[in-house]
Nucleic acid binder design. Sequence first.
DNA 1: CCACTTGCCGAAACCGGTTTCGGAACCTTG
DNA 2: CAAGGTTCCGAAACCGGTTTCGGCAAGTGG
Lengths: 373, 373
Amino acid sequence: METRVHKVRSDVRRHRVTINDVARELGMTKSTVSRALNGYPDISESTQLRVREAAQSLGYRPLANAQAIRTGRLRAIGLVLQLNEHDRHRPFLADFLAGISEAASAADWTITVATATSDEDTLRLLCKLADEHKADGFIVPRTLWDDRRVTFLREAHVPFVLYGRTGNSDGCAWFDIASETATQNAVELLHDLGHRRIGFIPGGRQYTYSRLRLEGYKAGLKRVGIPFDPDMVSRSALNPDEGGEAVVQLLSLKQPPTAIVSSIDRAALGAYAAARKCGLQIGSDISLISYDGIEEGELMTPALTTFSADVHLAGVRLTELLIKRINGVPPEALRELRPATFVARQSHGPMTRTPEEIAAIVSRAKNKVEEKQ
Amino acid sequence: METRVHKVRSDVRRHRVTINDVARELGMTKSTVSRALNGYPDISESTQLRVREAAQSLGYRPLANAQAIRTGRLRAIGLVLQLNEHDRHRPFLADFLAGISEAASAADWTITVATATSDEDTLRLLCKLADEHKADGFIVPRTLWDDRRVTFLREAHVPFVLYGRTGNSDGCAWFDIASETATQNAVELLHDLGHRRIGFIPGGRQYTYSRLRLEGYKAGLKRVGIPFDPDMVSRSALNPDEGGEAVVQLLSLKQPPTAIVSSIDRAALGAYAAARKCGLQIGSDISLISYDGIEEGELMTPALTTFSADVHLAGVRLTELLIKRINGVPPEALRELRPATFVARQSHGPMTRTPEEIAAIVSRAKNKVEEKQ
DNA sequence: CCACTTGCCGAAACCGGTTTCGGAACCTTG
DNA sequence: CAAGGTTCCGAAACCGGTTTCGGCAAGTGG
C-alpha cells in the first residue's frame, strides 16, 4: 500500500490510473465501473463494492475535466473579485476565500478565481469564464443595487448566488448579513444613551448595502421618535480620508450630532483624527458606532465599537447555496439572512455634551487652526 | 427537480458553439478546423484564415476541459494558500492575487485556488489538486527553508515555481525579492547615521526569508565593521504583540540598541507602543527600519520607514515564470531576484542618544511602572 | 510521359470519462 | 413448461476536442 501510493505519486505525469485500468484489473468494462462508482441502481451491491475497493487500492481518481465534457459539470465554483485601486485593501479577502475554500473542499469542489480592475473588466471576465465553462456557477460578491453581473448571469442561465441583495432579485439566490438591522440597533442604542442628534455616514452609493444601512438608520430614528434630518447624513465615505471629511462635514453643522453611525469601519477609522482636529475626542466627547468588524478597529484609541460581519461564514454559506443552486434547487429556496454581531468597545457612550457645546468646541478649534495659518 | 436539471443542461448545450458547428458551417471536417485554429503547418494559409473568421463570427470558444483530456494541458495555474489563524491577516493577498490573475488572463490562463489551515492541510490539498489535475502547475508562496511542498512537487514531476528561495533548490524555478540586501542596506544606512548598536528582530524561523534577512543583517554589520553580538538579535516576531515584546527585550539590555531593524512591518507596528512604554519615542529617541511596505506603516506616528516589496509584480512574474516552466523551459533558466524599494519615512534618523542614555531612560520608565503597581 | 515529391485535407482513432440500449441469465407466475 | 418480468452487465455511442495516417491532386524532375 505504502509503495503503491508512492508509485502513483511519482507517476502522475507519466501515466495516471484511468477508468480503463480499473476495468481491466476487474475484468469488466469501463461502463460498468463508471456506473458502479456513480452508484447506478442497475449495478449489484456486490459489484459496486468490488469496484470501489479496486478503485481505492489502485488509487483511481476520476478526472473532473473528462467527466465534465459529458456531464457538463466541472464541480468548480467561479469567483470574480473586483479589486479597484480604491478598495484594493480588502480586509476580508482572506477570510472570505477561506470560507469558500473550506466549503468547496468539503463537497469536493474547487474554486476558479479571477480579479478585475473595473466594472467592465469584471463583466468581461465573468462572461469569459462562463463562456469557456471554467466554472459551473458563480459567487457574486458586493452586489450593487443595479448590477450588470446579475443581469448577465440571469440571461445566460448560469447559476449564481449573490453576497448581498440587489434591486431586482428575480431568480436570484443570495446570502446576506442584516446590516440594516445592525444600523437600526446602533441608532436605538445611542438613543438609549441619551443622544438625540445622531449623524450618519453612508458607504458607496451604488452598493446595495449602502441603501439598506441608510434605511436601517431611518428605521431606527422612526422607532425612537426622532424626525429624520437630511443634514444629519454626510457625503458617502469609503476610506479613512473620506470618513474624516464626512465627520468634519457633520461637526460643522450649526446643530452637530453628538453621536455618529458609520456604514463601514474603514471610514470610521478616519473619524478619530478628524474629530481630534475639531477639538473632540471620540468616545468621551462624541460617540461613534460603525459596521464591519475589521481588525484595525480594535487597535484604535479608544477601540471602535462596531457590528461585526462573519465573512468566513458568508463564504461557507454562499458556497453551499451555490452548489445547491447548481444542483437544481430553485433560487427562491436559497436565500439566507444572518444577523451581525455587536462588538461593544469604547468608542460609544452616554451623551456628555449637547449639540450646542459641540458646536462651540468645533468653532473654537477651527479658529485656532486659522490663527496658526 | 429532475426536469429542471435537464432544462439547464439543454440550455447550456444550446448556447455553446462547438467545433462541429464551425466545421459544418464551413463544409470541412472538425479535424481541419482544429488544426487550422492551432496553426498546424499542413493547413493552407487561406484555409486558416477562413476558419479563424468563421470561428470568430460564430463565437466559437474551445472548451479548455475538452482540450485537456487529449493534450493534458488545462491552462490553469494552481495556488494553495495557507491562512493560519496566525497570519490570517495577509495584507498582500489582494495585490498578490491581482498580479497572478492579471498575468494569467493576459496569457488566457485561469487560476485554481484553495486555502489550507495547516502544513498538512496544504500538502493534502496540493496533492489532491495535482492528482486530479486541476492545474498544470503551482505557485508555492512563502517558502520554508525545508519545504515539504517542494519535495512533493519535485518527486511528482509537477511543474511549480516558488515565491522565495528554499534550502535545496534543485529543479526549482523561483522568484524572490532580495530582502537580504534590503536588510543589509538598512544596517549600513543606520551606521551612516551614527548608530553603532543596531538591534535585529527576526521573523518566523521556518521561513527562508527569515534566514536571509538575518544573513543580510550580519553582512551589513560586517561591511561597516561592527562585530556581531548575539544579544542584539531578539526573539522572532510575527505580529505587533510579539514585535512589542521583542523591542522590550532589546531595550532591556545593559547596552541597548539605538536603532532597530525589523524583519517584517507587522512586528514593527508593535514597536511603537512598546518603545513608548519604555519611555522612548520611535524616530526621535530610537530609530526603526523595517521591511514589507504594508499600508498601515504609513498611518503610524511617525510613519514607518521600510523597504517595500512589490507583491503585485511578484504575482505577475511568478505566473509568467510558471507558464514558461509548464511549457518546458528548464527551471534553472527561471530564477529571478528583484530589489526591494526603500521607502524613507520618519521612523529613522541620526543617533540622538547613546546606549547608556537609553538604558537609563528605560530603567527609569520601568521603575515608574512598578511604582504605579 | 512517368515516377516522385509536396501541399492539403478527410477519415478515423484517440483522450477519459458517461450514458443509452439491448440482451443473457435468472426468477416468477399461471 | 412456456411466457413474461427482473436483475445485471457488455457493447457501443457519445461528449468536444486533438492527433495520426493516408490519399488525392498538383507540381517537379528526368
